[in-house]
Design a protein around this nucleic acid. Structure first.
Ligand code: MN
Ligand code: MN
Ligand code: MN
Ligand code: MN
Lengths: 218, 218
DNA sequence: CTTTATTTTTAGTTAAGTCTAAAAATAAAG
DNA sequence: CTTTATTTTTAGACTTAACTAAAAATAAAG
């Protein structure tokens, strides 16, 4: 129905809409897709003709309901495949993103219906990201960035914002994964760095780490 | 490493080489891929430059060792995915080909290694076709077309030559699947049609059916 | 052998998706 | 406000993989 390129653009715009607020800029799309702004303009104009986005020259882009649905479905497929790779093929959570990036474009309703069932209809992917349902609806969950947690508060890790292999491997080294309890022992105002407790270990983390870890406060 | 189009051409040439003997003609490739001969010539010249085929103008095309290996690997992936779809997702054998046609192009050595293990390193796909090993080696098996079996001989169905949904659904209707025992009760010289016994049922089949069913004589 | 038919290749287009370079619009600074 | 900087779009070019139409080579028929 839609080309690989179109699906990737819709997905990128979907993610950017959820991060910022309001129209998504051409440069933001270009950066997130590692492509040039001129290429983005071309594609957006094509998507606008197909009524998948609303586009106003020099102002930015927003997905239409139709565009949102398609994007959410690609994300649904991506995350279901990630669950498959981790749960069934025993991949580690830092190895699955690139492969899912390809698998998300396989076209077959029936395949996804059956895959979902096979996996036990999971609600979250291996990185703690929610899996949209058949209709593209994303369950919104109560989660905060670890960086927003106050001193002496406790939280359980429910996801990661970044899911680069580097970051995930850092978390492994520190024995942090989905479900891990984290206590904030200290917080430095100057640079946002923290001292946290994980299990019996206490250690220092930078602001960059803290703002890429999602937790639910206890 | 190679584009989707390149992989599909290599696969088609691989299959055609195994059917006929000697060079594969441009028209044969075009027909099997539902494309135009001029497009085939273009692509073959590109594959020849990449040393994946040996091509002589007006004479035909043969895969090089490198080309064979790549083709066999695509076929390996295709057939492993078909096993996955049938064994794990409970698809029926007439529903999996189109989906595997997409999945065969997913690029990840590790994925296939793990998928193979997950499936128990199967030797055959749901249509009875052998799955090439990691090095592209195809286990050759003793099999004949049902049409080559003589009157009063018995065989067990080990595969299908065609695997179109229409043909597979016909076989279902007649209760024929991989492992089914078939006895040839009669054979008409004029049109190659047969009377066969399957289970307790005896019925007529045309030559077209008989020449698309592989059996091992008992 | 020649003529005719078939197969295959070449030449010239096209569409998707990308890029660079230049122009136009908007935003920021003075 | 005007000038400068940034963002965005347009124009033109390129690559891949298709196509049509025409030419060239090979095979088949007479
Ligand atoms: Mn993608
Ligand atoms: Mn994920
Ligand atoms: Mn294919
Ligand atoms: Mn098969």
């Amino acid at each position: 129905m839609f080309t690989l390129a179109e699906e990737n653009y819709l997905k990128a715009i979907f993610h950017l809409e959820h991060e910022g607020s309001g129209e998504v800029s051409t440069n933001a799309i270009a950066e997130s897709m590692e492509t040039k702004p001129s290429s983005v303009t071309d594609m957006i104009q094509k998507l606008a003709e197909k009524k998948l986005v609303v586009y106003k020259r020099y102002k930015g882009t927003l997905l239409t309901e139709k565009g949102k649905k398609i994007a959410a479905n690609v994300i649904r497929k991506h995350r279901l495949w990630e669950v498959f790779l981790v749960d069934k093929l025993n991949f580690h959570w830092d190895e699955v993103h690139e492969i899912a990036e390809q698998l998300e474009h396989i076209q077959s309703e029936e395949l996804i219906t059956r895959l979902d069932k096979f996996l036990g209809s999971p609600d979250f992917d291996p990185h703690g990201d929610p899996i949209p349902d058949k209709n593209g609806v994303l369950k919104r969950t109560e989660k905060k960035l670890l960086s927003q947690i106050e001193k002496n508060q406790k939280g359980v890790c429910v996801g990661v914002k970044e899911s680069s292999a580097d970051f995930l491997q850092y978390l492994d080294k520190k024995k942090i994964s989905i479900g891990t309890k984290i206590t904030v022992l200290g917080k430095e105002f100057f640079d946002g760095s923290m001292i946290i407790q994980v299990g019996n270990e206490q250690f220092f983390i930078s602001h960059k780490i803290a703002e890429n870890l999602y937790v639910q406060t206890l």
